[in-house]
Structure formats: structure tokens, C-alpha cells
Design a protein around this nucleic acid. Sequence first.
DNA 1: TGGTGTGAATGCCTTCACAGCG
DNA 2: CGCTGTGAAGGCATTCACACCA
Lengths: 209, 209
Amino acid sequence: MNQKKVSQSTISRLFAYLRELKTLSSLNIRTISSSEMGERLNLSDTQIRKDLGYFGSFGTSGAGYNIEELKVALKKILGKDKTWNVCIVGIGHLGSALLVYPGFKNHNLNVVAAFDSDPKKVGKNIDNIVVESIEQLKSSVGKKNIFIAIIATPAIVAQKIANDLIDSGIECIMNFAPIKLDVPEHVKVENVDLCHALETLTYFVGSGK
Amino acid sequence: MNQKKVSQSTISRLFAYLRELKTLSSLNIRTISSSEMGERLNLSDTQIRKDLGYFGSFGTSGAGYNIEELKVALKKILGKDKTWNVCIVGIGHLGSALLVYPGFKNHNLNVVAAFDSDPKKVGKNIDNIVVESIEQLKSSVGKKNIFIAIIATPAIVAQKIANDLIDSGIECIMNFAPIKLDVPEHVKVENVDLCHALETLTYFVGSGK
DNA sequence: TGGTGTGAATGCCTTCACAGCG
DNA sequence: CGCTGTGAAGGCATTCACACCA
């Protein structure tokens, strides 16, 4: 067991392991080896053992990992015993889609608030969430115990929104606006720049038009 | 100039440089140094010079980079003189949002086709694209000269769709389904697993509920 | 024997340091 | 003197190799 700096990619993979374990569990499989797991997730067996090694020893030599035990261990490591409230800012096409995205509900993520600056959208009820105005952002985020925000606004206002969110206590931001947000050290930002990702893909296309 | 293996992150950053150069250009700025550029993009100056160094020498000692010249050079390097046809498979909430996403149009990406298995959706006209049935996928992709696809279907069918796409000549896939796609060597996949990204963020939240 | 756990080796990417140029 | 271009160093993540265990 080695409690020193664990990379984000390791953490990210641990979540993938946990998800896979849930699938295996539902198939009534009892144990799995790191190499079998690796095949399922397109990862090397060593990678998996290394990742787990940061947090302890969970396997049995010669036998592999007990799925239920590892599930419990990972849930604890990853904080999956808690639930997280999430808000979405910017209820355009993308924001609306995220608001009804079923995937979040399967995890421990609850979308509990939505904000938009357009008066025409404020008050609208989408999937049991009533859209609030941007002015209410600061007070609502605190009141509703929200620590994670999704920014789905135009790029031009994203930084201002981010500032407001951080002032209100937000610690994690998933940012869909195509700009690099400037945030304090303690705030974690995950950028999802759709154009950029697609654009980058084009570089790898051999035959063009 | 050194034509050996350039990492994907370098390519990804080059696109960011190009976008920033366009902004600078529209502000009538003539030249920029790597350190100024770095400040704008939250990158180190060396990083930028290294990235450019893979493709040649574009700057002037003591003066920095001529914005227009560098723009032209990057456009050429990145294949921005071509346009790319894109299709979207799975026209649910997310797929529809992507279909009308304005960001793509600003780049050299044209969404030219959309597919869904739901007969109720087939034939619908969204933003001048008529949704086609999944059966038409194979023939349409070839006919319409599409090399890039966005998968926005449920996870359960994503692999099958991917296989069909690849059979039809697709070389790049942006995958929103929460599974690891199994694809041949030559196909480039960019996974955008929204749940996974958000889930990973939760690990970094200090105070829980 | 089959598989874990882990120090050592590798490889990749970023940063450093600085020579050289305008 | 300021800034580029680049070999060398450093840091980080993955892979290798193997000791050890059920």
C-alpha cells in the first residue's frame, strides 16, 4: 500500500473497473483475473494491478479478484457511497440534452438545478427541474448543496459563469464551452470541447475531399 | 525540421493555436511571442515552440511569430484547407443537440447525414438534415463521402453501429456511448463518456453529502 | 500452475537551459 | 537584448520481469 500521488488517469480507470465489476456481478460471475479484466477494457493486466496497488492488495494469488469484494473496496475508495448534486448552466440544445441524459441517474449524480439567462426559458419545467435565472445561481448553488456544475453556455460568458460558480462554492466544473477556463488551484475542470475533439480527429483521416 | 512521430496532444494543441491565431487576427494583431500565446492558452512558451518545431521554423528571433504566416502554415499542416463530412448516428436528445450544434459549422466540418433506428424519427427534417434509417447507413456513408461519424446511440448497439460504419469506410469515430469500442488499427476513436467524466470529477470533491 | 504485487526499466512528454540569431 | 529553436534533463505513466503466494 502506497499512499502517494495517484494520477487522474488511474482514478478514471478505477471508475471503469467498478462499472465493469457491476456488469460482471449481474452476470453472476464470482471472480476475475487482471488479464481477463484487461481484455474487457482494452487495458494491460499490469496496468490494472498497478492501479489497484496504489490502494492496497485486493486479489488472491493464482485465483484473481473476488468481484463482490473488489466492488466494495472500489466503492469506498471512489466515494461512491455518497451522492453528488449537479447543476447545469445554459439550457440550450446541449444543456437540455444533458438535463434529460439518463446516464447520470445510474451513477450517484443528481441533476438538481438548471440555470439560463434567457427569460423565455426561466420557469420552464424540464424533466422535473425548473429552470432558474442566472441571478439565482449564487444563492441556489449554496442552498441546494451543489458542488459540481456543467457549463453549457456560449464561450463568451463561460468565464463569468465559472467565476460565479466558484464564488458559490462549486469545486468541479465540466465545461462544454470552447475556452480554457481560468480557475483557482482547488477547482477541478474537465473540458469537453466538442468542436476541438472532432477537429483533431480530422488530422488522422487519410483521404480527404 | 523533424518528421518523426508527433503525439496526438501536440496535434490537438496545434488546432488550439490556430483557433487563437484567428482570434488575434480579428483583433488586428500582427505578431505574437510564444510566451504571450502561452499565457492566453495556459501553456508554457517552450511547449508551444516545441510543438511548432516538429513541423519547421516559423518564428523570427527576437520578434516572435507573424500571425498571418503562422496561420497559413498551421492550416496546411492540419489539413484545414479541406472540409470533412460528418454523420451522426442516434438522434435522441444528445444526437439532436449535436445536429444543430453551431460550433461544427465554424470549422471545416459539415454534418451531412443523420441516422436513427426509430421509424418515428426517420424522415424528420432537423436543421435541413433528413434523418435516415439505420439500414441506409452503409450506402449513404459511401455515397456522401463521409469519413467521420459521431455515435450517440445507447451503449448496447454502439459496437454494431461502429462495425457498420467501419465497413462503410469511416475512419474516425467520436463515440458518446459509454463503452470501449473494438475497432481495427487504422480507425481513430475519440471517446466522450459524459457519465464517466463527471463521475471521475466526484473523486476530487472535498466535502460530500 | 496460475495469478498477484511490485521494484526496475522503458518510453513518452514536458520543462530546462542555453546557443544562436535578428 | 529579446525571443526562437533545440539538445539534454527531468518527471510521469506504462510495461517488463520476476519473486512470491494459494
